[in-house]
Design a protein around this nucleic acid. Structure first.
Lengths: 143, 143
DNA sequence: ATAATATTGATTTTCATTTTCAATTTCAAG
DNA sequence: CTTGAAATTGAAAATGAAAATCAATATTAT
């Protein structure tokens, strides 16, 4: 199972840093690994509190920093003043389109674009490993 | 001259919004259009104050919001807690491909990709104003 | 020139993030 | 199974960039 191996990566990271394993960290990480969106700390805390009322904001904050440090989470800022954390997608890649007025984020996939990227890179002698594509504009509500 | 036409775009935008043209806005925009980096408000304010001590932080802030709204600036957050503004490149748009080994940066343009982006956005009801595309991979020397 | 309206800039407010600290928990060694 | 050093927790306070406020000022159409 995927979340198991992610948990193992976390455990290894803690060990090498001389940090301790705690029920709070495990719980927060487990919830996060099951998310599929760009989740903010508030949102994650809310999810966590549903079953575990005692966990505080600071612990979620610190756990997400750890996950980011060991590469299990990607912290992103889309311009709405909130840091959001992205769980590593198990399968495919997606790109983002961000509203420059209300900061709404939509995702899309386009195989043709990915293919053209590889071709454009090849023309310059580059081999593409990874990419980041963000479109900025107006969402349907803000046009 | 390019900065003239950018200034024209700004002027048109102000007009359609019923906003007024002021010496501060013109001055800030002019300075910004000459930048080549990802500049923060603090940095821009500092540049602006060199010749025009009376302009305040708030005005720079508001001017950059305007420039962002009309697509003349791109606001970015790299994770250091500061918003930075990127000036649109003078000679049309280009994307970047970055070598993950030696950090060499090459630029490319691809009209077809841009077109597909607009289409992908339209499917979601978005109107694209600008975009950021970064490819990461190996350059010819590092393959 | 006037009046209506927008802008300015110093300041304050807001709010997400980060730090602090006393109480608690973990874990390796005895 | 203890013990104790060291890390963790969570509530609360501090931080600081971004956004809002407001009286004074500037702009623009008439």
């Amino acid at each position: 199972m995927d979340s198991v191996s992610k948990m193992d990566i976390l455990k290894s990271y803690l060990e090498t840093k001389g940090l301790k394993s705690t029920s709070q960290r495990d719980y927060i990480a487990d919830i996060f690994f099951k998310t599929n969106t760009h989740i903010s700390l508030e949102e994650l805390l809310k999810k966590v509190k549903r079953k575990n009322t005692n966990i505080g904001y600071a612990t979620v904050y610190r756990t997400m920093r750890l996950l980011t440090e060991c590469g299990l989470a990607i912290s992103r800022q889309f311009g709405d003043g909130q840091t959001r954390y992205e769980n590593l997608p198990e399968d495919g890649h997606h790109d983002h389109i961000i509203c420059i007025k209300c900061s709404k984020i939509a995702e899309f996939q386009n195989q043709k674009i990915e293919q053209l990227q590889v071709e454009a890179a090849k023309k310059l002698g580059f081999t593409v490993v990874n990419h980041k594509l963000e479109l900025y504009g107006y969402c349907p509500d803000c046009v």
